[in-house]
Design a protein around this nucleic acid. Structure first.
Lengths: 258, 258
DNA sequence: GAACAGGTTCCACATAATGAAACCTTTCGT
DNA sequence: ACGAAAGGTTTCATTATGTGGAACCTGTTC
């Protein structure tokens, strides 16, 4: 896995088209896609044909394309077997409704944070909206919670994968600065995001450890500085830790591969 | 969309590999895949590399592959925008717990039934297990419920897409036989699966209609002949119809493209 | 009834995929 | 410690695949 990323190739292009369709967020016509994608008519047409015959897209008789059944199946294989989400769902829900704020559930995926569940207590329909999103580990609450409890070797590897781009003034700009923060996290069992990834967004996060003490994920309560001060997040600490522990227990039989 | 299906092409092959990974239901090693897939070592290797760099697979440092972040993202775009599931979730849950039996939520996808939610009242972990599965429309409760309320033109088209393969003695073997059944469904607003798809499995289904009277999906209570007789399914009728109506109302703003 | 927009098909050509074989690297048996 | 085997990665000449400009449908508009 050390050759440089290959963005090209037929498969890559086809997937780009899939992304385009997904981006629309609704069934979409050929001509609409044509504008958004960089491919000439004939090429795009062939891609759509291929993807349709592969059931990655479905072609409706009103002439629109939308993500197809195969994608659904693959997706749920992923969801069911490689993510904490189904195991943690009830706990996450409970926490969200008690906290009245967004709850995020995340796992580590090649040095990045992968959100596997996001829940807004207030809005049922927003559920799952941004599941699958990724974010850097070094500047998010969940990310730091996980990094702090990684085995030394793994941490070393993960650190190499961080860019240390400064999103805000509060973002850690180097491994050294991050490591100091992680020491605190390790002591308290709690990680804070102090507007490190996005202005105005703060969070309090706890790692999810299985019975062997291995990190399998992290969970956080996130809110905005307009509603809470950083210090006030302490109010969620006990509930968060308790929830994380419960999830850890439920997830023990199951090993996340990272 | 009239050229014959092209199962070949690079994209098709790559997706086959994805399916292989999904089939394992867990992170999988190179060598395991090698046995299951028809490709030589070098070819499979390249596919895995491509899919990994495209984030369709993730490569973990214990040397295993698993479905990746991009798939997750695509999946949830599909789930959120093209399926009744998130809209219907609460109603489905409520029905499942009242009925104490499996509840299936389905939509029509190119003449086939696509399950977008399945819920067992008894087992939280089985939730979502077979979402994305497809089944024939002509021999399932949900399928017949949807067919019966399709506009004549659409029904005609859908009938052409049915194979009328006889899964059991009870399966409809021809369009004629099916159409007679659909007349009944139209009259009563309820469809039964009388062990037509699988021995021992029966169900009672109702279509979900939006305010324009257009079919957007169907919902069913399914059980086995060891627990219920066909006639006893009547007990679920009222609750089923009521639930279907509620979902229809919630889904009215939203049009399923089929 | 001519011009147009949205799709679909053709085909000479360029590119990307193929897979046998050689090559690493780690693990295992003695 | 040594040889062999399993598991994984790279090379490269060959060939199958994908490419896209242009022509072509078909239904709609002015």
């Amino acid at each position: 896995m050390n050759t440089q990323a290959r963005g090209d190739g037929t498969v890559g292009k086809a997937l780009e088209v899939l992304d385009c369709v997904a981006e629309f967020g609704r069934p979409v016509r050929f001509s609409e896609l044509l504008e958004l994608s960089p491919y000439p008519k004939a090429t795009l047409y062939r891609f759509l044909q291929t993807l349709t015959s592969q059931k990655m897209l479905s072609y409706n008789d009103d002439g629109t394309y939308w993500l197809g059944a195969r994608l659904m199946r693959l997706a749920h294989a992923a969801w069911k077997n490689a993510s904490l989400a189904p195991i943690a769902r009830t706990h996450v829900e409970a926490l969200a409704s008690r906290a009245g704020e967004s709850v995020h559930l995340a796992q580590l995926d090649n040095g990045q944070v992968l959100f596997v569940d996001k829940l807004k207590a207030t809005d049922r329909f927003e559920t799952l909206a941004q599941v699958g999103q990724v974010a850097p580990a070094y500047c998010t609450g969940v990310g730091k919670a996980m990094l702090a409890f990684l085995a030394p070797k793994r941490l070393e590897l993960a650190l190499k994968q961080q860019s240390f781009f400064k999103y805000t003034e509060a973002t850690h700009g180097s491994a050294r600065s991050l490591l100091r923060d992680l020491d605190d996290v390790r002591k308290t069992g709690i990680a804070f995001d102090r507007q490190e990834h996005e202005h105005g967004i703060i969070s309090i996060a706890a790692p999810i450890l299985n019975d062997n003490g291995r990190v399998t994920g992290a969970i956080s309560v996130a809110t905005s500085t307009t509603r809470y001060q950083l210090e006030e997040l302490e109010a969620f600490r006990a509930d968060l830790l308790e929830t994380a522990e419960k999830i850890g227990k439920d997830a023990t039989h199951w090993q996340f591969p990272a």
